[in-house]
């Protein structure tokens, strides 16, 4: 039954590795998106600020 225990170990290791791997990938994607969202937000704010300014002065 030594080999049985080995297979059992491999199976559980695989399950938890895949689950944690997937969670890590979710986290990484979420962080990448949030960074992009912030930079886009900033860029949009700047762009709209620029177009607003001349209209205000003239």
């Amino acid at each position: 039954m030594q080999t049985g225990l080995w297979f059992l170990f491999v199976a559980f290791a695989v399950v938890w590795a895949v689950l944690f791997g997937y969670l890590a990938s979710l986290r990484a994607r979420q962080q990448r998106l949030e960074v992009e969202l912030r930079s886009l937000d900033a860029a949009l704010g700047r762009r709209e600020g620029e177009t607003d300014a001349p209209a205000g002065t003239s």
Partner: peptide, 13 residues
């Protein structure tokens, strides 16, 4: 994917 990974391990054992 997990089903398909654990299944063959079971099958082999």
């Amino acid at each position: 994917t997990l089903v398909l990974l654990t299944g063959p391990i079971w099958a082999r054992a």
